[in-house]
Simulated scan of single mutants.
Amino acid sequence: MAAHRRLIRRTAIAVTAGAAALVLAACSSDGGGHDMGSMNSDSSPSATASAKAGAHNDQDVSFAKEMIQHHRQAVSMADLAADRASSQDVKDLATKIKGAQDPEIKTMSGWLTSWGEEVPEDMSSSMPGMDHDMSSSMPGMMSSDDMDKLEKASGTEFDKMFLEMMVEHHEGAVEMAKMQKADGKYGPATKLADDVITAQTAEIKEMNKMLGKS
Results as ranks from 00 to 15, higher is better:
R5Y: 07
R6K: 13
I8W: 10
T11I: 15
T11E: 14
I13R: 14
A14S: 15
V15H: 09
T16Q: 12
A19R: 11
L22H: 06
V23P: 05
L24M: 12
A25T: 11
D30F: 15
G31N: 15
G33E: 13
D35L: 15
M39F: 11
P45F: 12
P45V: 08
T48E: 13
S50T: 15
A55L: 14
A55T: 04
A55S: 13
D58M: 12
V61D: 02
V61P: 09
V61Q: 06
F63L: 02
F63G: 00
K65W: 01
K65Q: 14
K65H: 10
E66G: 11
I68G: 05
Q69F: 06
A74W: 05
A74D: 06
A74G: 13
V75Y: 01
V75T: 05
M77N: 05
L80R: 00
L80D: 01
A82Y: 15
D83A: 02
R84M: 04
A85I: 01
S86Y: 08
Q88G: 06
D92K: 12
L93W: 02
T95L: 14
T95C: 06
G99P: 06
D102R: 08
D102Y: 04
P103S: 11
K106Y: 10
T113L: 10
S114H: 07
S114A: 10
W115T: 07
G116A: 07
E117V: 10
E117R: 12
E117D: 13
E118H: 07
V119K: 02
V119P: 02
P120C: 00
P120T: 03
E121Y: 12
E121H: 13
S124I: 08
S125K: 09
M127L: 11
M130C: 08
M130H: 13
D131P: 14
D133F: 08
S135C: 05
S135W: 05
S137K: 15
M138L: 08
M138C: 10
S143A: 05
S144E: 10
D146S: 09
M147G: 03
K149S: 11
A153N: 11
G155E: 00
E157N: 12
E157H: 11
F158L: 07
F158E: 04
D159K: 02
M161C: 06
F162N: 03
L163W: 03
L163T: 12
E164Q: 10
M165G: 11
V167W: 07
E171G: 05
G172T: 01
V174T: 03
K178F: 00
M179G: 15
K181T: 02
D183A: 03
G184M: 02
L192S: 01
D195P: 02
I197H: 05
I197K: 11
T198S: 09
T198P: 03
A199D: 09
Q200L: 02
E206A: 01
M207S: 04
